[in-house]
Amino acid sequence: MPKTALKPFLKYVGRRFFFLILTYFVAITIIFILPRAIPGNPLSQLLSRIAVQGAANPETISNVQKSLMEEFGVGKPIIVQYLSFLGRLFRGDLGTSINFYPKKCLDVLAPFIPWTLFLLIPATLTAWIIGNTLGAVAGNKRGTWMDNLVLNTSLVISQIPYYWLGMLLIYTFSVKLGIFPTQGGYAQGLLPSFSFKFITSVLYHYVLPFLSIVIAAIGGWAIGTRLLVIYELDADYTIFAVNLGMRDRTVFKYVFRNILLPQITGLALNLGSALGGALITELIFNYPGTGYILFRALSTLDYPLIQAIFVILIVAIYFANFIVDFVYAIVDPRIRLGQGEGS
């Protein structure tokens, strides 16, 4: 990289970084406020569990409530809670979960994260690759039967709610045909181990949730890519290249590279948000991912756990976003140089 190009580049990266910090701050403030805006007592599930477990002794419940209220600062002014949340966050402490008390939020989340990444990264990549390929082929053969087939199927598939697709898969393949299991990450009674039996069981349980995400996502990618290809095929440089007598394949190669740029952004953002899990898919398949635990946290108003999940999620998305910006600046000289002109 020539020296003259470096300064605007650093400026660009620096500016992105500043906005990143600013929006991050706004985001964590929102995730602090939102769960608290939901009416209800976050200790209710925990307390009712004690009540139901037999010892419905009013003293016990009152004492536990008192002790927990102190510990979690529930009932203190919201600004005090907010400052203590920020203070702890600054020290890297995401707090203790209410419903999994005394487990730390990070300890609660840790076992779910690998499962979610294991489900979502391959599924997102597969959908991206298949979707883009289909879209590109369709766009290139615009107006043919293949284009019609891809476009129409994609339109239909991308509009199917993915949870409904999940339920449909369960109904067809698990309940009716009995080929695949209905729920879980692996067969009941197995203990996780590096054994053939366990790995095959995991893969067996993996098929349906994987398919439900891939199928639902392919359509969107394909439609997007097809449009981009058509747009690029009409661009001046393509027409120029065609008129020069370049082979179709070569032209398509250039076109494909150009359309990949926006699609990479989409992919990166998708992968960034993968940490949040596929909430409803994981719920339907009772799959032990972060989406599942997020649902639990939300339905029990477990403030610290909700916050922890979103803090991690936001960091991941921002990180992905930042990487994309960074990669862009390297890949696309227009962006890098644009910063220099602006000032």
Binding site: P114, W115, L190, F194, F198, L203
Partner: peptide, 24 residues
């Protein structure tokens, strides 16, 4: 795809406690 798939699988399984001798 296969490569990504397998490496994620491997990673997952490494993160899961595999010290237990018993399988089921």
């Amino acid at each position: 795809i296969l490569g990504v798939f397998l490496s994620v699988l491997l990673l997952t399984l490494l993160l899961v406690p595999s010290t237990l001798g018993q399988v089921s």
